[in-house]
Design a protein around this nucleic acid. Structure first.
Length: 666
DNA sequence: CTTTTCACAGTCGCGCGGATGGGA
DNA sequence: TCCCATCCGCGCGACTGTGAAAAG
């Protein structure tokens, strides 16, 4: 089947040879062309999507964390069951609505199980790092229109899209995405069902690869995304295009080293609603415009490339721009056309292609899709929530000029600083307000925030770095001795039961080299990723010069007295998530005993709303950089600094280290 | 009233050109 | 003296959120 036949008018920014998507592989199920993983029934009340939509959506699989998915869907189901009318009412972010409860809560509510493989899990899963990924792909909230069973994100494994699906994605034409794909006809959002822990990744071998491996994807800067997600991420869209922040950055593993892949991001509607910011909350306001046209795909400029290339470094989409200019899509493939006040869900697609640039049709499992719910955002032409604005200012280097306390951020005595001053590498640092927090390399937030924060608070509850799993072979060694086999992924054994050990190992000692089995060499933690903020420029060059690390290191060594903190603790989105959870719970339900105390300090923003005057809150929120009640730690640099100074600081610095440590040299 | 657009100031990276220093 | 490599400063452009005006 020719691509054109699938997507008339489809135009993509990839070499034509790679788009010669003739696909003979049709799907074996009602999802044509898609490799259907046996997921549990995810059917929802949605109506049947168009065939075109089904094709692509069916592949919308994600590498989900079982627990995550489970909790996610479970909550969803519960919400639906207990409050049938909830869906009919306007979901309110941060409120009790289904979205907030099902999506946000679960996302943030990262329990231990979220990161650990169930002991009952098949061994195959146990050994598969994929299971360890935090969000292998939950797509719970992606709006597929209907037929959630196919779309979804609920797919516990990385989704495998059929060539057709890929074609659709890559070559998505306006019409295709506008009506067929993005908008299913279904009335409601799809919330993936959880396939269950039994699903085995190994069951999805990539034919021809000679191994039963499947790609696994990490959202490198997930913690930062989570920070935004807590407040409902907003992304500015402009006519000329606005970069995303946080931008998408992934770590991929499990690819065939020599095989060629195209990697691209697609942005699809997350739900069928039109949103508006009212009373300090995001509420639905009618139906989404499903006729929106325009490019929805951004192909990574380095595509196509080998699996080794993609796995060698993180894949960043820093130059991806969002626009509301429908006319800008034709010749500007760097821009994705979105519609303001609509909620979107970015998705990562990895498609194997043959060396001659033709999509490999030898297997259905050549296309994989990964969705991270925390990547969801509402497109806006102007920021609505000041918390988001503040987060952007605090974390986006380009907005440094808007930081009120920029000067004071570096006033702390040098001795108190554990990270280099901004002048060491201006853009390389993520400057976060706060004397102690200020010096965090940008990468920490943008890429590494996912380092384990602190087991001290959640030692027993959760210890595995969800994030990168990158953390610790070392710990694994100590815990299970299987580190060598796990590469940078946390070993299953650990996950299942040695969380505390893991944490301890992190605390006890951090050694980059120890984290790098397989001859992976640690790189200077600070530099590469600092540059990484500009993946297409500095980072790209870094990647290009990966082999010539000498020069690279030389460049990086400039005065970064930064001494890695000795122990990257197990990653803790927990802090974030728990905090979020608390916030959410604070307004909706009683906090969970035993895990709330550390985070009670920050009254939920929404709580203020709930208890106070909504309009007043809205006004306050709309006032630039004003944090309601000063309770929002994220909104107030000063407060944030204080709040983060001890806990998050450690967390983030550790994260950074852990993350950096896994960059490898060929 | 809400949403979008535009100009603006601020920050910073990159590229260019000139200056400098060392070696042939 | 010439050539080459390196360093430095400047200007441009990209990028950000702001805030007012325009548009609907």
């Amino acid at each position: 089947m020719q691509l054109e036949s699938i997507l008339p008018g489809a135009s993509v920014n990839l070499p034509k040879t790679f788009y010669n998507l003739s696909t003979s592989s049709e799907s074996t199920n009602n999802s044509p062309g898609s490799t259907q993983i046996d997921f549990q029934d995810m059917d929802r009340t949605d109506t049947e999507p168009s065939s075109g939509a089904k094709k692509f959506l069916s592949g919308g699989n994600a590498l989900m964390d079982e627990a995550d998915t489970e909790s996610f869907t479970g909550t969803k189901a519960t919400a639906a069951a207990t409050a049938p009318d909830a869906r009919k009412t306007s979901p309110v972010i941060g409120g009790d609505d289904e979205l907030s409860s099902a999506r946000r809560y679960n996302i943030d509510e990262l329990g231990t199980d979220r990161y650990f493989i169930s002991s009952s899990q098949p061994s195959s899963d146990v050994t598969n790092p994929c299971s360890l990924f935090p969000y292998g792909g939950q797509t719970g909230s992606v709006y597929s229109g209907s037929n959630g069973s196919r779309y979804s994100s609920s797919l516990h494994y990385g989704s495998v899209l059929p060539p057709a699906g890929f074609s659709s994605a890559v070559c998505a034409s306006r019409s295709q995405f506008g009506s067929g794909y993005q908008f299913g006809q279904g009335p409601g959002c799809l919330y993936p069902s959880y396939p269950g822990p039994g699903s085995s990744l190994s069951s999805m071998p990539i034919p021809g690869s000679g191994s039963a491996t499947r790609a696994q994807v990490y959202l490198c800067n997930r913690p930062l995304w989570l920070k935004f997600h807590r407040h409902q991420t907003e992304m500015i869209i402009t006519k000329q295009g606005r970069r995303m922040f946080p931008f998408l950055s992934f770590n991929i593993t499990g690819l065939n080293l020599t095989a060629h892949y195209n990697v691209f991001v697609e942005v699809v509607l997350a739900d069928p609603n039109h949103w508006r910011f009212q009373g300090g909350k995001w509420v639905t306001c009618g139906k989404a415009d499903n006729n929106m046209q325009g490019n929805k795909v951004y192909v990574h400029p380095e595509s196509p490339n080998t699996g080794a290339h993609w796995m060698r470094q993180e894949i960043s989409f820093g130059k991806l721009k969002l626009t509301n200019n429908k006319g800008a899509n034709n010749n500007n493939t760097q821009m994705i056309v979105l519609q303001s006040l609509h909620k979107y869900q970015p998705r990562l697609h990895i498609v194997e292609v043959t060396e001659d640039g033709v999509e490999d049709m030898s297997s259905e499992a050549k296309t994989q899709t990964f969705t991270f719910p925390e990547n969801q955002f509402i497109a806006v032409t102007a920021y609505q929530n000041t918390d988001i604005t503040q987060l952007k200012i605090d974390h986006n280097p380009f907005a440094k000029g808007f930081r009120d306390n920029y000067d004071s951020m570096y006033t702390a005595p040098e001795s108190d600083r554990l990270t280099p001053s901004p002048t060491d590498s201006p853009r390389s640092h993520q400057i976060v307000p706060g004397a102690r927090y200020a010096m965090q390399p940008f990468f920490q937030d943008q890429f590494v925030n996912n380092l384990p924060q602190n087991h001290r608070f959640y030692g027993s509850e959760r210890a595995v770095p969800q994030t990168n799993g990158l953390l610790s072979p070392q710990s694994e060694d100590s815990a299970s001795g299987a580190a060598s086999a796990q590469r940078w992924f946390v070993g299953p054994v650990q996950q299942s039961g040695a969380s505390s050990k893991l944490d301890l190992s992190y605390d006890s000692e951090y050694s980059a080299s120890s984290l790098l089995p397989y001859g992976i060499k640690p790189l200077p933690l600070q530099s590469p990723h600092a540059l990484g903020y500009y993946p297409d420029s500095a980072f790209a060059s870094m990647a290009a010069g990966w082999s010539s690390r000498s020069s690279y290191q030389r460049k990086m060594t400039t005065g970064l007295p930064w001494s890695p903190r000795p122990s990257p603790p197990a990653y803790t989105d927990d802090l974030l998530t728990s905090k979020d959870k608390l916030q959410d719970e604070g307004s909706t339900s009683a906090p969970t005993a035993g895990t709330t105390a550390p985070w009670m300090e920050a009254p939920p923003v929404l709580k203020v709303v709930d208890s106070g005057d909504a309009s007043g809150y809205a006004m306050a929120c709309k006032r630039r950089r004003v944090s309601p009640g000063g309770s929002s730690t994220d909104a107030s640099p000063t407060i944030k600094c204080e709040d983060l100074s001890s806990e998050e600081y450690n967390k983030e610095s550790h994260k950074a280290m852990g993350y950096y440590a896994f960059y490898t040299s060929p």
